[in-house]
Amino acid sequence: MFKTNLIRILKTGFQNFWRNSWLSIATISVIFLTLSVITALVLLNVVSQSVVANLQNKVDISAYFHTQTPEDDILDLRKHLVDLPEVEAVNYISREDALESFREKHDDNEILMQSIAELNDNPLQASLNIKSHTASQYQGIVSFLEKDEYKSMVDKINYHQNKEVIERVSSLAANIGTGGIAASLILALMAIFVTFNTIRLTMYNWKDEISVMRLVGAGNWYIRGPFLVEGVIYGLLAALASLIISYPLLYLVSPKITSFLPEVDLLYFFEANIWQIIALLIIVGVALGCISSAIAIRRYLRA
């Protein structure tokens, strides 16, 4: 009996789907749109995370020392820094090195060159350039440099400027994420609304049948079944459509993004996580379809 019912419910569900093919297509399009935005959101998240991670790798700290600080003291401090577990590398740039690179950088600027030459002393400071393993460890290194014993030699630490860039990128990524989530929620609501109305229309076509079903004592699940099936079909087809469209699209677009941001390979991410992506799309699509039909059926089933 269960099998007979299941076959009949599936059959009626497919009938509903075919009889209103234009409405079905419209409904699938809206769910498809929602799923595409969600996919785009996931991929955007991958991009922004890679960019942030990459930026964090490029960050370092430079500590500048007062010009009268003896070189030995600085090299001594360097040894201590290298011993710190969070420090990956420390580069010493002497005052002469600094002047050298300053000259190289500005050799087309005559005024600047002249004024440097007019000074009898090298105005540039020696510095230590420090890289840590991860960005969060910089705070610890900064506090190490701010200890009393080094206070007298350290003039300034330029960590804070870079931190700002990182924070700006991170918050930009977070904003894009929030915006994307809001957009997908709005689209999801729209999808529910459209699916709800479509299913209500197919239900309207079935209203005589439904009233007879109730009259002769059909179970509520038997009445609900075909419309839930209809909703599930919408969700599945929309998920399928967004997979079919996003893969070739990524195939074209991903290399361009990679050439622009070498650390980002969306196609690889997509392929590596294909099952999770398929599962996400199907779950969200089917859930949208089911929720909408469940709401639409409710009023037909009261009493």
Partner: peptide
């Protein structure tokens, strides 16, 4: 139909 919908 009346039989179908109750699982006949």
């Amino acid at each position: 139909f009346a039989m179908e919908v109750v699982g006949g």
